[in-house]
Design a protein around this nucleic acid. Structure first.
Lengths: 133, 133
DNA sequence: CCATTTTTAGTAATGATTACTATTTTTAAA
DNA sequence: TTTAAAAATAGTAATCATTACTAAAAATGG
């Protein structure tokens, strides 16, 4: 599939690039409609997804559509399979070093906390790729 | 508000603690129904949220309900305000050090990538807390 | 036991996203 | 430049995870 050049895609991209606010699709829809009053919300969604897939824009967040829960409340880390969507615990000794640096970063930024997640394919995963974002 | 002791909450928690799979609410609902066939999906949702709020279980993922997009595709980091949900870019020199350690971690884990996100209140945020998860 | 608070099951509503479809636009080659 | 194929569009309907609502039931603490 090739990208066609359309005014909709051009305006969506240029408006997104002007913003520092990391907008949602519907926020961008509101902005883009000032230039293209006839554009539809579905067009905004479709173009953002296509451009994210192509690496032209960044889609924030790794998490899927559904919330996931963990009975283990100790600090530990997860790896999410981009193909089947499964989430598994991972362990690595270097993470304590990462945590100590990030605790300094938190002070610098005056932030409250951080979240780290890994992506990687399950060893035993043969399922077709699912859209996890 | 105090927690009452109910069989629903007890079974939800004990079944969750048995699992390594980080289930979604509806996956857990399916499992819990084997013990309590009359339980409703809403009860599972409500109890998981309450227990997450109380720190008894962990809710994975930080991201909100809506996807967010960024025109800047260079590697950089975000801080999400737990009160108003806004997402802002943050910068810190220590992050390059974190990245170099994490690239070793990726090799160890045979993972593909990582995602880091910070939480922290906006300086100018007076909005009431919104449920971002 | 009893009044108050909390929780429940069941159902309806919400809201973000995706799917569908007939039409229009873009593309690239003749 | 036509022109046929491919891609994209607007508008609408459908989906699906989650939340809200409600009357009834259960738990709590005196």
């Amino acid at each position: 599939m090739k990208f066609s050049r359309t005014s909709q895609r051009r305006v969506i991209l240029s408006e997104l690039r002007k913003l520092k606010s990391h907008p949602t699709a519907d926020e961008l829809y509101t902005i883009v409609r000032e230039k293209l009053p006839q554009i539809s919300l579905g067009t905004v969604y479709r173009n953002l997804d296509q451009m994210a897939e192509a690496g032209i824009v960044q889609r924030l967040e790794l998490c899927g559509r559904q919330k996931r829960f963990d009975g283990n409340i100790d600090r530990h880390y997860h790896m999410r399979c981009p193909d089947c969507g499964a989430v598994k615990d991972v362990e690595n000794d270097r993470m304590s070093h990462v945590e100590s640096i990030l605790s300094d970063v938190l002070e610098d930024l005056d932030a409250e906390g951080f979240w780290i997640e890994f992506t990687g394919q399950c060893k035993d995963c043969n399922k077709p790729r699912v859209e996890i974002i």
